[in-house]
Design a protein around this nucleic acid. Structure first.
Length: 110
DNA sequence: CATTTGACCGTCG
DNA sequence: TCGACGGCCAAAT
């Protein structure tokens, strides 16, 4: 791994790790917190590298609350199972009561 | 060094 | 209200 990656990826990991239990956030929210409002895709890209780390990527979804990245997990419904295990209601890869379980890093971490 | 891709988001039709 | 297109930034090939 290149140490240069620590700049952007590390930031995403730090925020993702700070996501409270039973809460989820969106790529865009993290991107905004990092100052890259237009770089939401980079957050997702960073998550791809988050494999093997203690980053709860299953708590990170798109702004629609849709589990777009479930395909990147080991199983097909692993991501959904993890969320449901934390008390998050998920139906058809869609998080229910998304605004209720939504966790904004900008508000929580300022 | 240039091109493609990517776990997205916002706007326009 | 829903579907399609472009934009943005960075890493990989």
């Amino acid at each position: 791994m290149k140490p240069e990656t620590l700049n952007f990826f590390e930031r995403v990991y730090e925020v993702a790790k700070k996501i409270p239990y039973g809460r989820v956030t969106s790529y865009g929210a993290i991107a905004v917190y990092l100052g890259a409002q237009r770089g939401a895709r980079m957050v997702g890209y960073a998550m791809n590298n988050a494999h093997g780390k203690d980053v709860p990527a299953h708590r990170v979804v798109n702004r629609k609350g849709l589990l777009t990245g479930k395909h990147h997990f080991e199983g097909t419904n692993l991501m959904q199972q993890l969320l449901e295990n934390e008390g998050v209601e998920v139906v058809e890869n869609q998080i229910q009561n998304f605004d209720d379980v939504f966790w904004s890093p900008s508000e929580a971490l300022h």
